[in-house]
Computed example of a mutant assay.
Amino acid sequence: MTRIEGIHFQTGKPVSLTIENGRIKEIEANAGRMGGNLPWIGPGLVDLQINGYNGMDFNTLPFEEELVHRVSQSLWKAGVTSYFPTIITNSDEAVCDAVRTIARACSQDGRTAASIAGIHLEGPFISPEDGPRGAHSRKYVKPPDWALFQQWQEAAQGKIKIVTLSPEWPGAADFIAKCTESGITVAIGHTAATPEQIRDAVEAGARMSTHLGNGAHLMLPRHPNYLWEQLADDRLWACVIADGFHLPESVLKVVLRVKGKQAILVSDAVYLSGMKPGEYKTHIGGKVVLTPAGKLHLTGNPGLLAGSAQMLPWGIAHLVKKKLCRLPEAWEMASIRPSELVDLPGKHGLSTNAPADLVLFEWNGDQIAILQTIKNGQTVYGADEMKGGEQSWELLS
């Protein structure tokens, strides 16, 4: 049995948590303790979209099971207790190899299996058009193929839990319905679909928008268009990248106001996240710059982003510092809400009998510092025990 004291992330009041057998056994008010010298306590962060981390990439093949273990462990220092390795558009064989390797890694190590809540397949069933396609290779983009997907799912041992696609393809609604019947969350993303096709997708079971506002044309009809349609549909949860670079504050504000408790924070982190600022040559042959301010852009063109390099604590801090929401809501967007969408036990947050997936952190109004990460009641990261000290996420000025 373990006892933890801290400031409850929702109430702002001191509490004591008793942990037993990997679960929260009891939560008690702790009025006798001063809050000033206590860390904050929040539920573990859940990231629905991780392409890689700290130089390790799920989309540079081949990769070994050891890479999956290392990414899972490295993410603990960012407070991430559950995540979805994200495989993007690639050849049929490459996708199959990637999901198979992730599944094997889960079968080898219990902590890896506990951290990976599922695999997110982002493509290849996306728009072939420039703009919506983003950085995905046009060569491998294709219409939804249920037989092919079943092959990948078999290789993944059933671990593909999220599929991002564009409903602009003929037969997309039938594919979405089959995924939904199989318990897979279908997300709309990288799309050039018409409003009618968006509506058909939602009727068929699509439930989420992948990084809404990104992976889109630079120019759109003012209305109707696929962004308005996704914003307006109350059945769709909206994921946003709140790193300060991918979406302006006005767009984030609108998404949070319109979607309410169905707004979710994702990192969409690429493998250069966690790396030091500098110039890097990516595996697709292009040179990129990771600035000291945290922006990842193409060398020679700061206006073109090369992916997201910031983790969920950065996004939480950005939302709060810009007064787009308060800390409890921002933390919920990166923990409880994604768990609710994909039906993870963490949807219960800090409550009795909930899994003891917890994060202890400092928050000074400008930045978040992860102090300790607990997975299933076991400490898996403690900043004071790691070389280099605390991992901090500083905000943009």
Rank of each mutant, 00 (worst) to 15 (best):
Gly52Leu: 09
Val186Gly: 13
Gly123His: 08
Gly32Tyr: 00
Leu324Trp: 06
Val320Asn: 08
Gln73His: 05
Arg138Gln: 15
Val251Asp: 06
Ser127Pro: 15
Ala204Lys: 07
Asp384Asn: 03
Pro248His: 14
Gly134Ala: 14
Lys261Cys: 02
Lys322Cys: 01
Gly213Thr: 08
Leu247Glu: 09
Cys325Phe: 06
Glu385Arg: 10
Leu272Gln: 02
His69Glu: 15
Ala156Leu: 11
Ala105Arg: 07
Asp97Trp: 12
Pro39Gln: 02
Asn51Cys: 14
Ala29Cys: 00
Ser392Gln: 15
His318Asp: 02
Arg23Ile: 06
Leu371Asp: 04
Ile24Asn: 10
Ala354Asn: 06
Ala192Ser: 15
Thr164Ile: 14
Pro14Lys: 00
Arg70Ser: 11
Ile27Asn: 00
Gly55Ala: 08
Ser351Met: 01
Glu20Thr: 01
Ile102Tyr: 13
Trp331Arg: 02
Asp92Ser: 06
Gly213Asn: 10
Gly315Ala: 14
Pro195Val: 05
Ala135Asp: 07
Leu272Lys: 06
Pro128Thr: 11
Gly389Glu: 03
Glu26Ala: 05
Phe175His: 04
Gln108Glu: 13
Val258Asn: 07
Leu298Val: 01
Lys281Glu: 13
Glu168Ala: 13
Ser16Val: 12
Val68Pro: 02
Ala242Asp: 04
Leu290Ala: 04
Glu362Lys: 06
Asp92Gln: 06
Ser115Cys: 15
Lys323Tyr: 03
Ser82Cys: 12
Gly315Met: 01
Gln108Arg: 12
Ile102His: 08
Phe175Asp: 03
Ala369Met: 06
Lys295Gly: 01
Gly377Arg: 08
Gly346Asp: 11
Ala187Asp: 11
Ile316Met: 14
Leu305Tyr: 10
Gly183Pro: 07
Tyr140Pro: 02
Gly365Val: 04
Glu122Asp: 15
Gln108Lys: 09
Leu360Tyr: 01
Glu26Pro: 00
Ser137Asn: 12
Pro14Ile: 00
Asp268Cys: 14
Gly52Thr: 04
Val254Lys: 11
Phe361Gly: 02
Glu66Phe: 06
Arg23Tyr: 00
Leu360His: 01
Ala216His: 15
Leu324Lys: 00
Met56Leu: 15
Glu28Lys: 05
Val71Trp: 15
Val254Cys: 12
Leu304Ile: 11
Pro144Glu: 03
Glu340Val: 03
Glu196Val: 13
His136Ala: 12
Leu324Tyr: 05
Pro292Lys: 02
Asp234Leu: 05
His246Glu: 09
Lys139Ile: 01
Phe361Pro: 00
Lys287Pro: 02
Ile119Asp: 11
Ile264Asn: 10
Asp174Arg: 13
Thr291Cys: 07
Gly35Thr: 00
Ile336Leu: 15
Pro144Asp: 03
Arg337Asp: 08
Ala94Tyr: 07
Lys261Asp: 15
Ala173Arg: 01
Pro277Gln: 10
His318Gln: 05
Trp40Gly: 00
Leu395Gly: 12
Leu371Ala: 02
Glu394Val: 07
Glu20Met: 01
Ile50Ser: 14
Thr86Ala: 12
Ala369Gly: 11
Val289Met: 04
Gly183Asp: 10
Thr18Leu: 10
Pro277Tyr: 04
Leu121Val: 03
Ala334Gly: 11
Gly215Ala: 13
Ala105Gly: 14
Glu28Gln: 10
His318Cys: 01
Pro128Trp: 13
Gln150Val: 07
Thr112His: 10
Thr81Gln: 10
